[in-house]
Amino acid sequence: MLEARFGETLLLKKIVDALKEIISQSTLDCTETGMQLQSMDNSHVSLVALSLQTEGFEKYRCDRNVSLGLDLKSLAKVVKSASGDDAVTLTAADKADKLLLSFESDNKSRTADYELKLLNLDQDHLGIPETNYACIVQMPSSEFARICRDMSMFSESVVISCTKQGIKFSANGDMGSANIKLSDTSKGDITIDVDEPITQSFAGRYLNTFTRATPLSDRVKICLAPDVPLLVEYPIEDYGYIRYYLAPKVDE
């Protein structure tokens, strides 16, 4: 049986918002060490991986591994009906065909229980190899969101170039071009670690979708290496992270 309590529904809302634009259905795998989710988008261009460790939960118990096939739009509807500061407990039996969500207001004066039907999903699980990234950039998540939004006005493709001098985002389209450069700051709000310089091209639409995770974290980590997907990682408090991988565009 699974029993997992989030202190605030707001966090679960943010997690669902960070997932639902990129994947519509996915399996949440629950074990005694926490919850994991991994899914490709429909076009198999990107992959999202969510990890929530037990440390973050107010209460966590999972006696036997449970896989919960979720429809994220439905989950979003249920979560939306609760107040952000409600506590929420997820409960599922060992061979569950439904997930119970129990919301409890601060002073316990209001409780709301929802049963969500689970799906039988047959999902491929992909192995993500350990990668030594050539460039690792950390910046405020709001800055990254702003850059992705501004870039996608100009072109479908965004070129990311990273050198010791800084990281540059470029877009070139019918209406003109845009270049935004960021350099390492002494304040430490932007850090750039470069083993070797790299230039890669990515679909701006996906980068923009990843920034739905911005409310989860003040910081975002962007990792690049030659001939491997881009990694965009948002930490989630004491729980873990949400990671987005995006396959590069290559010259024809």
Binding site: H44, D124, H125, I128, V228, A247, K249
Partner: peptide, 14 residues
């Protein structure tokens, strides 16, 4: 001209 690659070509099925 660039072409979009698939994420499944980098990460193999387990």
């Amino acid at each position: 001209n660039t072409t979009q690659t698939s994420i499944a070509s980098y990460f193999k099925k387990e």
